[in-house]
Structure formats: structure tokens, C-alpha cells
Computed example of a mutant assay.
Amino acid sequence: MRVSDEDRERTTQQLQHAFSEGRLNPLELEDRLGTALAAKTYGDLLAVISDLPVEPRADEVLELGSKNGHVKRSGDWAVPRRLRVTSKYGSVDLDFSEAVTTHPVVEVELDLTYGSAKIVLPEGGVANVDGFQSDWGSSSTSGVPSRPRPGALYVVISGRAKYGGLTVRYPRKRWFTH
């Protein structure tokens, strides 16, 4: 997908912020800024920021929550840069396979007490679950790679489940018979 001037500007701001924190030296900043300003696709932008921490703006955070119910997003829905999901006794089901994702990196922060989370990525999507911890459950990525890839959705998952787990997978293949 092609990027806008606003996307390029946001990326250059992220690079300058990383430089001010000492994450990039002056030569790296100059090289990356040149690449970002000439970027044509989200893959081009992802290549210059994939090794940097994501700094979401406050207006780009969606908070979802439930005490007893199921938190679910699927189909054609708009994905923000960051999702914060809290569920006390229910499960979480986030399906990105048909979602509209205009950001190359999406952060998902989970706070689960007695429930599990399932995240379905679009084909080729990538997920990093290193920041997720389960006290009495497991986390599974079912063949989903964890390193960023240019042009692919990169989902960074963090948070905790006390009595539940996390599953990240691709959509199930559907077989039709006539």
C-alpha cells in the first residue's frame, strides 16, 4: 500500500525521536531519513523503523474491555496503532485478516484475568509475543514468524494473562464443495 506525506512525516518524527534518545547515531539518522522521505510503500517505511520502539499518540489508542463478556473484533474494522484490551472473566478474539490496517506496526496490550486471547493475522502477517506473559497458561504462535518483514503487518503483543493463554495464527483454510 502506498504511503502519504503524513505517513512519511510521522516516520521522520519517530526517527528524530530515536536519535534524541541515543538509539541512532547521526549517520544512521541521515540514511534513514533519506529512505523515509523517498518511501513509496509502508514496507519502505517499516524497513527504517522496525528495530525502534513504537511511540503511539494518545488519539491512536483504542481501549476495549469487558468484565464478563467476550471482546471480539472481526471482519471489516479499522485497526488503530495501539489496542489496549482488558477482560476479567471473558475471552478476547481479534481477527485482523479482513481488517483495515493503515499502520505497518500495531501494538496490542492484553490484560486478562480468567480468559484467553486469540489473534488471527492476515496471511504473511508477523507477530512478536515476547512481551506477553501467562501465569497459568501458554502462548502459541502456530507457525507465525516473529521478526518484522517489509510490507507485512507487524503486530507487537504485550501484557499478561493470569489464568489464560494466547494463540496467534493465520486464518483457517476453507474448503468448499459443490
Results as ranks from 00 to 15, higher is better:
Arg84Val: 14
Gly75Met: 09
Val54Ile: 14
Tyr89Pro: 01
Gly75Lys: 03
Gly90Asn: 03
Ser66Arg: 00
Leu64Cys: 07
Gly65Met: 07
Glu63Gly: 01
Ser66Asn: 05
His70Asp: 14
Glu60His: 04
Gly65His: 09
Lys88Pro: 02
Arg57His: 12
Lys88His: 11
Lys88Ser: 11
Val85Trp: 05
Asp93Thr: 15
Leu94Tyr: 00
Trp77His: 07
Arg73Gly: 04
Val85Tyr: 05
Pro56Tyr: 04
Ser66Trp: 00
Glu63Pro: 05
His70Ala: 12
Ser66His: 00
Pro56Val: 07
Ser87Tyr: 00
Arg84Asp: 12
Gly90Ser: 08
Lys72Val: 10
Ser66Tyr: 00
Asn68Asp: 15
Glu60Trp: 00
Thr86Glu: 08
Ser87Glu: 05
Leu94Asp: 00
Gly65Trp: 03
Leu64Gly: 04
Lys88Cys: 07
Val85Ser: 10
Trp77Met: 13
Gly75Arg: 02
Leu64Asn: 01
Arg81Leu: 15
Asn68Tyr: 11
Ser66Ala: 12
Thr86Asp: 09
Val61Trp: 02
Lys72Ala: 14
Val79Glu: 07
Trp77Lys: 06
Ser74His: 04
Arg73Thr: 07
Lys88Trp: 13
Val92Trp: 01
Gly65Arg: 10
Ala58Gly: 05
Ser74Tyr: 03
Pro80Glu: 11
Asp76Ile: 06
Gly69Asp: 01
Ser91Asp: 15
Glu63Ser: 10
Leu83Phe: 11
Lys67Asp: 04
Arg57Pro: 11
Trp77Ile: 09
Ser91Gln: 10
Ser91Asn: 15
Arg73Asn: 01
Ala78Ser: 13
Tyr89Leu: 03
Arg73Cys: 05
Lys67Ser: 14
Arg73Ile: 07
Arg82Thr: 13
Asp76Ser: 09
Thr86Cys: 08
Ser74Cys: 08
Glu60Met: 10
Lys67Val: 15
Ser91Glu: 12
Gly65Thr: 09
Gly65Ile: 07
Asp59Trp: 01
Asp76Arg: 08
Ala78Gly: 06
Arg73Leu: 08
Val92Arg: 01
Ser66Ile: 04
Arg57Thr: 13
Asp76Phe: 04
Glu63Ile: 09
Arg81Trp: 10
Val54Gly: 14
Ala58Asp: 13
Ser87Phe: 02
Arg82Ser: 09
Leu83Gly: 08
Glu55Leu: 15
Leu64Ala: 05
Lys88Gln: 12
Arg81Tyr: 11
Val92Tyr: 02
Arg81Cys: 14
Leu64Ser: 04
Asp93Pro: 09
Ala58Tyr: 03
Gly69Tyr: 00
Val54Trp: 10
Ala78Phe: 03
